[in-house]
Amino acid sequence: MDYAPPPDYAAFLQHQLTQQQAGVASYRLGGAQVWLKRAGPRHGMGRYRVLGAIAGALRLDVLRPIPNLGGRPAIATEVRRLRELAARGLRVPRVLAAQEDGFLMLHLGGPAQHTPSLADEMNAAVNAGPEAVLALWRQGLQALRHVHESGACLSQAFARNLVRCPDGVMGYIDFEDDPAAVLPLPQCQSRDALCFVHSTALYLRMAGALDDARPVWQDWMQACPTAMHAVLAHSIARMGWLRHLPQSRRLGRDLQRARAAHDLLTPHA
């Protein structure tokens, strides 16, 4: 039986970085599917100062924006975070090789195997009714709890960054920033929860599952560690003004998401 040596990932990365134009691209290498992510242009800090001022005015540190400078710093952060989270036993893409301008990671499924995001799954399940959407939403909450019980947090815990691996396990992607570098862990984990709710509550509303989801959220929040529970309770109380947002589709998806999130987080909305 012929023996095929493992691919030289570092050499492939070094060569392909000089050829690849896109920020992220997929390749077949040694019978596996891999992704190469290259450094993009550095980001300006203006938008972060504005968002930081808004969060400060509302006295909500949990919503304080996490600077992502892009370029080489973002690559270094993502490589470090992927390795740290993998060491905690979390399902994240495995880093195969890395250098300052980019890194190579293994696809979370086999070659050509689809790994849909939780956002895509929930959107597709809306027509199946409230139970189908609620079941997926519960799985997302469980995936967050798994991260938090490991002593970690995500970067942007939106449903688009939670992906379904072929074996059914929920994986996590997109780690260009590190909230724990600027916020205490209870605030980082509360931020995860609020980002998740913001990105999923509208699917629950569309499926008619919002009322059933509300006690699920309350139970999940009650089971949080004391410090995290306190941060969430304070944040939700400060966000009460969201109830004044209209639900009209004409005012855009973002406002719809914010209003649906408020109605989910508030026991008697």
Rank of each mutant, 00 (worst) to 15 (best):
D101E: 13
D101K: 09
D101C: 04
G102K: 02
G102L: 05
G102R: 01
F103T: 09
F103Y: 15
F103H: 05
L104W: 01
L104F: 02
M105F: 10
L106C: 03
L106H: 12
H107C: 08
L108P: 01
L108I: 10
G109R: 11
G109H: 12
G110E: 03
G110A: 05
G110S: 03
P111T: 13
P111S: 01
P111Q: 01
P111M: 00
A112S: 11
Q113F: 06
H114M: 02
H114T: 12
H114R: 15
T115V: 15
P116V: 10
P116M: 09
S117N: 08
A119K: 14
A119T: 10
D120Q: 14
D120I: 02
D120Y: 07
E121D: 09
M122F: 11
M122W: 10
N123I: 07
A124I: 12
A124D: 15
A125Q: 09
A125T: 02
A125I: 05
A125L: 11
N127H: 10
A128F: 07
A128R: 15
E131Q: 14
E131V: 07
V133A: 12
V133R: 09
L134M: 05
L134P: 00
L134R: 06
L134F: 07
L134S: 02
A135T: 05
A135V: 00
A135E: 13
L136S: 02
L136I: 14
L136V: 12
L136E: 04
W137C: 02
W137K: 03
W137H: 05
R138E: 11
R138G: 02
Q139Y: 01
Q139N: 03
Q139L: 12
G140A: 09
Q142N: 07
L144G: 06
L144D: 05
R145W: 14
H146W: 07
H146V: 13
H148W: 09
E149A: 14
S150N: 03
S150G: 10
G151I: 14
G151E: 09
